[in-house]
Every structure is written in C-alpha cells, then in structure tokens.
Amino acid sequence: MSTRVPLLQGTLDLLILKILIFGEQHGQGIARAIQAESGEVLLVDHGSLYPALQRLEDRGWVKAQWGVSANNRKARFYTMTAAGRQQLHREASEWEKMTAAIGRVLAAQAKET
C-alpha cells in the first residue's frame, strides 16, 4: 500500500461537497469516493465524516434523507442544496488560490541582488 496522508484540517467540507456534486450519496459512499478519487492517498477517518456532514446539514448546504442503498441496506442519503453548490465554488476557488500561492513560495529561488 502506498503512503497515505491524513486530511488537512478544514478540507473535509470541501471534499464532501465536491463528491456530492455527482449526485446523492450516503456517508460510507462519500468516504469511499474521497479515498478512491484521491488515488487512495487521502486517509479519511470515516468517523470524522459524520460530524462534518451534520455541520453541512445545519448550515443548509446539504439535505439528508433515509433511503435504501444499492445492496438493500438502510442508509442516510445526502444531496447538495443550491447554497451548498455556491459554497463549493467559493471554497474551491479559495483552495486553488491558496495552493497556487503556497506553490509559488515553495518554488521561490534565491534572488540576485
């Protein structure tokens, strides 16, 4: 197994919202999707997903409803709201700005004076 990195603080919300853009999903599915989409690099503590989902739900970015999974198990399915979609755009562009800025700093060369 390749080396795995724990999730950066504060990025879980962004990843959850991103996964939900593909349609409704339950918590375990979201955890799986994040892990799979990251090429099995990101280490998601499955438990930490649920307080995060609850937070997103309280803020009105996702909606939840009990349903039945593909293999006939009861599960709570999450869907993204319009406000959630806006939040995703906001957070994603912020993230891109930040990573680009950090990348520039890391790539800095010694300046000639």
Binding site: H26, G27, Q28, G29, A31, R32, H46, G47, Y50, Q54, S69, N71, R73, K74, A75, R76
Partner: peptide, 16 residues
Amino acid sequence: DFDDEIRAHIELETDR
C-alpha cells in the same frame, strides 16, 4: 438517528 447512521455505515463498509 445519528447512531443509526453510524451503524448503517459500519454495515455498508463491512459489506464492501
């Protein structure tokens, strides 16, 4: 309800 969701998660993950 929250506990039910956790249980559902463990069942789904076990199935997988």
